[in-house]
Design a protein around this nucleic acid. Structure first.
Lengths: 187, 187
DNA sequence: GGTTAAGCTGAATCTCGATTCCGGTTGACC
DNA sequence: GGTCAACCGGAATCGAGATTCAGCTTAACC
């Protein structure tokens, strides 16, 4: 027995919104900066106007991509935090998993790397939630003596930002980069 | 007694070329993507047309910035390689020095991070030379047992690319990132 | 100080692409 | 099956900014 939760708005509007986000991911992945609203609309099977009914500007659209991804990350992080086993290992796996999914999604990666302030403001809440989920994990790993004592949650962003950049620089090279970073994080 | 080496071309042309590069660095640093050819020309004190006499397109201009920087890096690397002392420590200093100068030069950093293939093709030779300068240093460090054995010169690019990305993400955070990476590189 | 090829200027052009807007649709609810 | 607010389509608009070009300057060499 599945509960069908009542969503706000019209069904077709909801469907279109998602189609637009999916199309945007693909277009930004393939064309980066050069991705065009017209193309995104065409791929989503809607008119340009429809994009603007859902997202105020191109930047807002980028922002939504980032937000969506970060909400997924936060969820993963919560799940990992609830598991058991050595904290550092769980943290490591979380980073690798997240990196893996970002590596597969060049469109969102573009949004994260090239997005301006507007984009980040949009995803602020989800980012906060993600850090909160990591905090206890890191505390535990530090208590276990597995994590370098001076490492702070806020630094995760910088590190992963570097890993994302590596993905564009050379496909698959990010694994080595992350491995090296993780070794640098060990106590 | 200083030898004044005969340079090709007219003196004013040479001066203008350099003024354009300097202006471009500043404009790209301040406005990133939004930097305009007109603005660069204005800052350099020349007409737009003059930029196009020296550089075929905006991308070529970006490419030249990267090339200039990489040639400087290669020179530094040669100097470091010729010094004495523990190889790993010299390598570390080289990376920190280079990072430091990139951190001060947001314009070139923009060119490195956002430049497309065109840009990299332009700087290919200098990049090659840089790697060649690092190779013997890393071999020595590895022989000393200070460097993780599986590290290869080609991976320097990925790592530094990540460090550069960190610079834009949060000023000064790159020092920690590089520190962590370097710890990850130790044997 | 004359000659001239190399350089310079900057208004005009040309392209491209985000955003707007208004007439036509349609899902949701009665 | 009727009503209508919410939604959609997509041609037209509008601004922005890279690049061009025709006419003017000047460094370099005699």
């Amino acid at each position: 027995m599945v509960h069908v939760v009542k969503q706000p708005g019209r069904a077709d509007a909801r469907r279109n919104r998602q189609a637009i986000l999916d199309a945007a991911r693909v277009e930004f992945a393939e064309h980066g900066d050069a991705a065009q609203m017209d193309q995104i609309a065409a791929r989503a099977g809607v008119g340009v106007g429809t994009i603007y009914r859902h997202f105020a500007t191109k930047d807002a659209l980028l922002g939504e991509l980032v937000d969506e991804r970060f909400r997924a990350f936060a969820q993963d992080a919560d799940a990992v935090a609830a598991q058991d086993g050595p904290a550092f290992e769980r943290f490591r796996r979380m980073l690798v998993d997240n990196a893996e999914s970002i590596a597969r999604d060049a469109g969102t990666r573009f949004a994260i790397l090239r997005g301006g302030d507007e984009v980040w403001r949009h995803a602020e809440a989800a980012r906060e939630r993600l850090l909160d989920a990591c905090r206890p994990l890191l505390d535990e790993a530090r208590a276990d003596g597995d994590l370098r004592p001076d490492f702070r949650v806020e630094e995760i962003g910088v590190l992963m930002c570097g890993v994302c950049a590596a993905m564009d620089y050379k496909p698959e090279a990010w694994r080595r980069h992350l491995e090296i970073v993780l070794d640098g994080l060990r106590a």
